[in-house]
Design a protein around this nucleic acid. Structure first.
Length: 438
RNA sequence: GGAGGUGUCGCCUAGUCCGGUCUAUGGCGCCGCACUGCUAAUGCGGUUUGGGUUUAUCGCCCAUCGCGAGUUCAAAUCUCGCCACCUCCGCCA
C-alpha cells in the first residue's frame, strides 16, 4: 500500500505510476472518491458516537438518584430518565447505521487500495518485458565452435552425469517436477553451503522458514493481486504455499515496531518454493528452467526508507559476487515498469548466459518494495522522528534449478563431463569434475 | 483430537464475580525538566497504537483491553464463535 497522504496531496503521482506500469488510471479516480467517502462516513460516525457517549454519561448518575429519591421526587426523576432513554435509543439506532456505513466505506476503500501497485521509481525504464535496460555484462560466453564441439543442453548433461531425472518427476508428480539425483543432489547442497557461507559473511541472519502461510502474509507481500494465479492455495485450510521465502521473511516482523537502531535487519532464508506457472504453457517445457517446486536462498532486508536504494545496490552486489564465484557469464538488467510486479518500485535481474539458448536467462531478481509491503503488513520503525513505515527489499541469492542449469551448460566439456567451479569444490569433498555415469 | 487454564496501552500488574464513578491502577523501563562538581539518588511531568480535525502550535473528537459478532441507552466487564499460548491425555515424524 502507498502512503494515503500522497493520494490526497498529489494523486497525479499515482496516476503517472499507473500509466508507466500500464495499469488502470481510472482506479486512482475511484480511490480519491472512496477516500473522501470513507472520511465523511467516519466523521459522521465519530460525531454521533460522541453525542451518544455524552448522553450515556448522564444516565448513570440519574438512575442512581432515582433509587434514592423519595416518593415525591420519584415521579419527576423517573420522567427525566425516561426522556433521556428515549433520546438515547434514537441515537443508538443512528450510531449503528453510521457505524455500518463507515465500515462499508472503509472496506470499499481497502478493496481499491489492494488493486493499486507500488509507485514506480522514476529511474526504471518505461515499457514492457522487452524494454529493460542492460546495466552491465560480465564475463565472456565460451565459443564452443572454436573449442570444436556442440554444447549439450542442461537436461542432456544432467541425465548424462546422473544429476537430473525429469521423467520420474513427471511420473510421480506430473509435468514440471523433477528429481535431483546423486551428484545433482550433492550439487544443490554444495550451492546451499556456498550461498549461506557468503550470506553469513555479509552479516545476513540464516533462516529456515515456513512454506505454508496464512492469507494475511500472502496478501501483505502483494502476491494475491495479478500474481494470484501462480500461487498454490490449500483450500481445506485456507493457506498458501509460498512461491518464495520473501513471504515468510516479510511476515516475520508483521505488526511489529522496530527500533531504528536495530536496522537494517538482513536475513537469508532457505525454503522450497512453489509456483503454478499458469499461463506459461509451452514455455520452457524441457528441463528444469521452469518448474513447480524448487529450493532457493532468498535475501530479505528491513531498513530505513531513505537507505533503501543503497541497500538495493548492496543486494545486487552480493548477487554478483555469488554468480562470480560460479564463473558464469551474466548481465544485469534494470527491469521495465510494466514487468515489475505489484510490490516493486524498482527491480534488477541478473541473467546468466545459457549457451544452448544463445541468450541470457533470469537467475536472480532483486526488488526494492519501498514501504509498500511494510504498510500492508503493519511493519514500522521508531526513530527520533517518531513511528513510521520502514522499507523492505528482497533478492535472490541462489535459485537452485536455474543455477544448476547455468553451471552444467557453461562448464561442460566435450565428453559431457562438468568442471566444478573452484568455489564449490570445498563443499563437494574437493571433487573437481562431474563425469558421465557409465 | 480430548480436558482444563491463560490472554489488559514495551515488560509485569490492578480492574472482570456484581456493566456507568475506566478519561484502564500501580511498578519497572524509557523521555523531558528540576536539584546537583560529575554520576547516582530524589522530586515533578510525560510515555499504547491507529484514524479524523486543526496544523503556527496547543488542543479537541473517535476507535483500540487477543480477534470477530451479539445483548444494552451504555461493554475491559455479560453472551456466542474464533485464534494464540500453557498444563495434562491421546496420536505421531
Amino acid at each position: 500500500m502507498i502512503d494515503p497522504q500522497i493520494l490526497r496531496t498529489d494523486p497525479d503521482r499515482l496516476r503517472e505510476s499507473q500509466r508507466r506500469r500500464g495499469e488502470s488510471i481510472e482506479l486512482i479516480d475511484d480511490l480519491v472518491a472512496a477516500d473522501i467517502a470513507k472520511r465523511e462516513a467516519q466523521t459522521r460516525f465519530d460525531e454521533l458516537r460522541n453525542e451518544q457517549k455524552v448522553l450515556g454519561k448522564q444516565i448513570g448518575p440519574l438512575q442512581g438518584a432515582l433509587k434514592k429519591a423519595d416518593d415525591d421526587a420519584r415521579a419527576q426523576a423517573q420522567a427525566e430518565v425516561d426522556a433521556l432513554m428515549a433520546q438515547a435509543q434514537i441515537l443508538a439506532e443512528q450510531v449503528k447505521a453510521a457505524d455500518a456505513a463507515a465500515t462499508a466505506a472503509g472496506e470499499a476503500l481497502d478493496a481499491l487500495w489492494l488493486q493499486v501497485s507500488n509507485l514506480v521509481n522514476l529511474e526504471s525504464p518505461v515499457g514492457g518485458e522487452e524494454d529493460f535496460t542492460v546495466l552491465e555484462e560480465i564475463g565472456t560466453p565460451r565459443d564452443f565452435a572454436a573449442e570444436g564441439f556442440e554444447p549439450r543442453d542442461h537436461l542432456e548433461l544432467g541425465e548424462l552425469i546422473g544429476a537430473i531425472d525429469v521423467e520420474r518427476g513427471a511420473k510421480v508428480s506430473g509435468s514440471r517436477f523433477f528429481y535431483l539425483t546423486g551428484p545433482g543432489a550433492m550439487l544443490e547442497i554444495a550451492l546451499l553451503n556456498l550461498a549461506m557461507q557468503q550470506a553469513t559473511s555479509h552479516g545476513l541472519i540464516p533462516m529456515i522458514t515456513p512454506t505454508l502461510v496464512l492469507p494475511s502474509a500472502m496478501e501483505g507481500t502483494g502476491f494475491l493481486g495479478q500474481a494470484a494465479e501462480n500461487v498454490y492455495r490449500i483450500e481445506q485450510d485456507d493457506m498458501y504455499l509460498v512461491g518464495t521465502s520473501e513471504v515468510p521473511l516479510a511476515g516475520y516482523h508483521a505488526d511489529e515496531i522496530i527500533d531504528a537502531d536495530r536496522l537494517p535487519l538482513r536475513y537469508a532464508g532457505w525454503s522450497s518454493c512453489f509456483r503454478r506457472e499458469a499461463g506459461s504453457y509451452g514455455k520452457d517445457t524441457r528441463g528444469i528452467i521452469r518448474v513447480h517446486q524448487f529450493d532457493k536462498v532468498e535475501m530479505f532486508v528491513y531498513c530505513r526508507p531513505e537507505d533503501a536504494e543503497a541497500e538495493h545496490a548492496r543486494l545486487v552486489a552480493w548477487e554478483k559476487k555469488f554468480i562470480d564465484a560460479l564463473e558464469i557469464p551474466y548481465r544485469v538488467i534494470d527491469v521495465a515498469t510494466g514487468d515489475l510486479g505489484s510490490s516493486a518500485a524498482r527491480k534488477f535481474d541478473i541473467e546468466a548466459w545459457i549457451p544452448t539458448q544463445g541468450t541470457y536467462r533470469e537467475i536472480t531478481s532483486t526488488s526494492n518494495t519501498t514501504e509498500f509491503q511494510a504498510r500492508r503488513l503493519k511493519i514500522r520503525m521508531r526513530d527520533e522522528n517518531g513511528t513510521r513505515p520502514l522499507a523492505t527489499l528482497n533478492g535472490t541469492l541462489c535459485a537452485m534449478p536455474r543455477v544448476i542449469v547455468a553451471i552444467l551448460e557453461n562448464h561442460q566439456q566435450a565428453d559431457g563431463s562438468i568442471v566444478i567451479p573452484t568455489a564449490l569444490r570445498p563443499f563437494l569433498g574437493g571433487q573437481e569434475v562431474f563425469t558421465p555415469a557409465s
